[in-house]
Amino acid sequence: MIIATINGIPVHVAEGTTILEAARQVQVKIPTLCHHPDLPPTAACGICIVKVQGSNKMLRACCTPIEEGMNILTHDPEIVEVRRTVLELILSNHPNDCLKCGRNQSCELQNLAAAFGIREELFPKFISGIPKDDSTNAFVIDPDKCIHCGRCIEICQELQQVWALSFLGRGFSSRFAPAAGMRLVESPCVECGQCSSHCPTGAIFELDETVKVWQKLQDPDNYCVVQIAPSVRVAIGEAFGMPPGTNMTGKLYTVLRRLGFKAVFDTSFAADVTVME
């Protein structure tokens, strides 16, 4: 057990606990950006910095284990100023097209900017202008929106062991890309979706074909049918705020009919057969 204090509040945590985890235990919120609970810290963004009494250095809360007797300060004018400058710098390297972005309203960078009350830009904008990669039917990669948190790469390389994504180049021109700079469709990517589900911004998001579906449904010359995967009946409930696991099969069929599908096919029987096999 380690005993330390955070903003004067005593904490008792197990050895190896990071400052960030310890702070959360006593309801002290340290802002983070690159950190994700599923992944080891990449320590890339520099937003979660804190001070330790007796040192004029600032430490990253996400990856620094708390030590016995540490007196940690999470907020003071200097810390907040540095955090804010770092955020402003990140924003200066990020396009302002939130309205058109696939991650609008579910973007961690957007939330952080809102939390810091950013209303205007302090620094001139520099966007690299690297073209999007929409070579697959699964994802769109938009390198300009990448904040270099490294989550996608960490998960692709270390957790999924696919190694489809990596960082290329260095300095200001470094970027994340399918390995060796090839297009995603030519890369070893298996379209597992872990990268996009962990991306904090709109740098990797699922290819969205909703508009195309609407157009087909509204075209009187088309006869539209739909087939749903077995998991959708449950997953859609969560999206609408139902408790996890709620079965929505009936409601789903009705909704799909009301949308204009002439026939609804369900894959659940085939899925059951697969499981029995």
Binding site: C45, R170, S174
Partner: peptide, 9 residues
């Protein structure tokens, strides 16, 4: 190297 935001940007 381009890893962390303060240095890169």
């Amino acid at each position: 190297c381009g890893k962390c935001a303060p240095c890169r940007i």
